[in-house]
Design a protein around this nucleic acid. Structure first.
Lengths: 217, 217
DNA sequence: GCATATTTGTCCGTATGTATA
DNA sequence: CTATACATACGGACAAATATG
């Protein structure tokens, strides 16, 4: 669609770096991002950093307050609720119309295997990332650049929310097997059954996330 | 969701102005947007204009090429196809779960009436805008800030595509009555029937747009 | 294919306004 | 209420990439 994921270009590079810091938890939600300090830290000019802020603001990872600057976005329960509403609307139809020999199926399988490997090391953060990749691959089944783009932003916001919760085992481990079951149904040519599993996954996952958020300090 | 629709702020204002020029057809698809000329024309500095470019690039209205600058995005038949795929996935579920006394229903009615008024003047461009507003209101039924945000960008891209086609009567007029029918089904508490009408609307509308594109000079 | 003009990418310095301690 | 820190916006500079003759 667009040539905007220009991997060369200092602004895009720095946007990627800052995005990683935010969803990786190195920068906490609500934290202020002062232009002067951060631009020096990144080794770029304030003008360049401001362009970075515009990109990440559009991604929902930053909040821009008038004359006050940029802050890391702070997910709330309303955020979680909205995200899961979107996930239902996007993932379920994408999976339902999924074709067993689509390229994205290989991505789904790779994601499940990566999650299983990380489980062996009890690395729940990596398990969480692999599970996200699984759902990104589901969306890729729809072959829609715009939907893919949209969902990438949703995923980034989810990772930000997870970062707020730490990465406890019970928030990620149970879904490895469920994802595998979804994948198998799809490969068997039963996408409707796969979609049913996905639907129940989304329900339990949302509920668990919401209670985790409610019990936050 | 975010404080990013900051109406104060020169960048947001200028982004709005430039967005209007693009979707209004004053700037043609593929046209180059030189920083020097445009910044002087808008009365802003090059740095500020670059921030504007980042915003509109994220909206899909601009394409950024490395070391070559910004160009107005050029919709293709693939663009149209993708946009309609997204519209199906978003609008139909939104309408299906629509509640007859939702705020957005009033917006839908207002949009139909605006379209009828403009039809009396044979002002097909305004009819087209009102029809778009009708569908934006459908999405608002879902009460999802992220979905609303996403759909706004889709609408902007559609208007860009329509601009390419001029605004012939038969691309807009037939849908006024259809939109009214959809609205009435929803108000009668039959959202499923409304969604069926919407589905067939999307099919015919997409087909007509695609053929119009295929016959483009 | 070359030399030149143009344009982008990035930086710096600075003036002004706004919020906060 | 003043002082201070910060964001906003501008203009100029220059290297590097690109377009032009």
């Amino acid at each position: 669609m667009a040539t905007n994921d220009n991997s060369s270009g200092l602004v895009e590079q720095m946007a990627g770096a800052l995005r990683l810091r935010i969803i990786g938890g190195a920068l906490l939600p609500g934290q202020r991002l002062p232009e002067a300090r951060l631009s020096e830290e990144l080794g770029i000019s304030r003008n360049t950093l401001r362009e970075v802020f515009r990109l990440l603001g559009r991604d929902g990872l930053l909040r821009h307050e008038p004359n006050r600057g940029a802050f890391v976005a702070t997910p709330t329960m309303a955020t979680i609720h909205d995200i899961y509403r979107v996930r239902r609307m996007v993932e379920i139809p994408a999976l339902k119309q999924g074709w067993p020999r689509h390229q994205a199926v290989a991505r789904m399988r790779a994601a499940v295997e990566a999650a299983e490997l990380a489980r062996a090391d009890a690395d729940w953060r990596t398990v969480g990332s692999a599970n996200m990749e699984f759902h990104t691959a589901i969306v890729a089944l729809a072959d829609s650049p715009r939907l893919t783009d949209f969902f990438d932003r949703i995923v980034a916001e989810m990772r930000l929310a997870f970062g707020l919760l730490g990465s406890p085992e019970d928030l990620h481990e149970p879904y490895i097997a469920l994802n595998l079951a979804i994948l198998q149904r799809l490969e068997e040519g039963a996408p409707a059954e796969a979609a049913d599993l996905l639907d129940s996954y989304l329900s339990t996952s949302e509920r668990k996330l919401m209670t985790a958020f409610a019990n936050l300090p």
